[in-house]
């Protein structure tokens, strides 16, 4: 019954989506705790300490990995939400078209976030 819609899922199968969702969750939890820890544990949290942190290549890479994890995680989560609520049962025959439009918009935002993040991290 769900065969048609699963082609838009991130990992193309429930097993891979399940795994990607967990791996990205662990990355995001680690990144969040790191940032919170940095802000609270810095003796003097200022522009100097903050920009020095992001001058380190590992921090830029860590941030990029977290951003990519965000995009993957959000896609899998929002896909679940969208395929649960924007359905033919809930909205009638137009649901499939509406769902595709919403998915395309979400994907566009995901690409926008990724490019923006890379520009912040590496652009001048």
């Amino acid at each position: 019954m769900d065969m048609v819609t699963t082609i838009t899922s991130f990992g193309r199968s429930g097993t891979f989506d399940w795994l990607y969702q967990r791996v990205s969750a662990v990355v995001l939890a680690t990144y969040t705790l790191f940032i919170v820890g940095f802000i609270f544990l810095s003796d003097d949290f200022s522009y100097q300490t903050w920009s020095a942190l992001f001058e380190q290549r590992w921090m830029r890479v860590f941030t990029l990995v977290a951003l990519l994890a965000t995009v993957v995680h959000a896609w899998i989560g929002l896909w679940s939400v969208v395929t649960d609520y924007i359905t033919n049962r809930m909205m009638g025959p137009k649901a499939t078209a509406i769902r595709v439009v919403v998915e395309v918009l979400l994907a566009a935002v995901a690409v926008f976030y990724t490019v923006w993040g890379i520009e912040i991290l590496w652009g001048v």
Partner: peptide, 8 residues
């Protein structure tokens, strides 16, 4: 989760 996508 939906809210956080905008918070990004």
């Amino acid at each position: 989760g939906v809210v956080l996508f905008a918070v990004v």
